[in-house]
Amino acid sequence: MTVQSPHRPGGGANEPVGDLVQRASQQLSQLVRDEMRLAQAEMTEKGRRFGKGGGLFGGAGLMGVLTLQALAATVIAALSLTLDVWAAALIVTGVLAAVTALMAALGKRQVKKASPPTLQRTVDSVKADVAEIKERAQR
């Protein structure tokens, strides 16, 4: 059995069904490889951005801890003008513990709300490929 192929460079040449199936299989394999390369490139790009962002957040966190230590020492020194030093330190420690607990609870809630990262461009590309294949199959 042969099929007329309007898309083949030879124009109106008859093409055996086996050749068409073989070519479709090769094209589908190539399409899958291309989609995998796109997914890999997208994940590499996201990984680099996460790495840079994580490094910057880490540095900011360290500076924040140092700043908080200096601020705590300043507040303790200021409170010690009217209270004993141990009482001033205990008050500051209690306030810091409360802020820590609040931030941990808020952070936990945000992590639960976060959805897993998706490869949106790859997903969109695969959907477009499937739609194209379905459209051509219906012709």
Rank of each mutant, 00 (worst) to 15 (best):
V21N: 04
M43F: 06
R8T: 01
L83K: 09
G107D: 01
A73G: 15
A101C: 07
G53L: 10
S29D: 14
Q120L: 06
G59K: 15
A39P: 01
L79T: 03
L102N: 04
G54S: 10
L106E: 08
L56A: 14
A128E: 09
L68H: 15
K112R: 15
K52S: 08
L83E: 08
T82V: 14
D124F: 02
P6M: 04
A98P: 00
E35S: 11
T82E: 13
K108C: 03
M63G: 12
M43L: 13
G12L: 09
A13H: 10
G12P: 03
L28A: 15
S25E: 10
A131Y: 04
A97G: 06
A70F: 06
R37Y: 09
L79A: 08
G51A: 05
A73M: 12
R49G: 01
A104Y: 05
P16Y: 13
N14Q: 15
T2A: 13
H7F: 15
L38T: 03
A70C: 03
Q30L: 08
L83G: 02
T122M: 03
I133G: 00
V75T: 07
L79N: 05
A41E: 08
D84H: 14
L79W: 03
D34V: 01
F50D: 02
R109Y: 04
Q120A: 08
Q4Y: 13
A114I: 01
K112Q: 12
K113G: 03
V123L: 11
Q26G: 10
F50C: 02
G47N: 05
F57E: 07
G107E: 00
A70Q: 12
T67N: 14
A89D: 08
K46T: 04
V123G: 00
V85W: 00
G59V: 02
A131I: 00
L28Y: 14
A88C: 05
K134A: 13
V130N: 06
V32Q: 12
P116I: 00
L81R: 10
T100C: 11
V65D: 12
D84V: 07
S115R: 10
A60T: 01
L71Y: 07
E132A: 15
L31A: 13
V75E: 11
A137N: 09
E132W: 09
A88T: 02
A39V: 07
L90V: 12
R23W: 01
R48T: 03
A70D: 07
L90H: 07
M1L: 10
G107F: 01
G51Q: 06
S29Y: 13
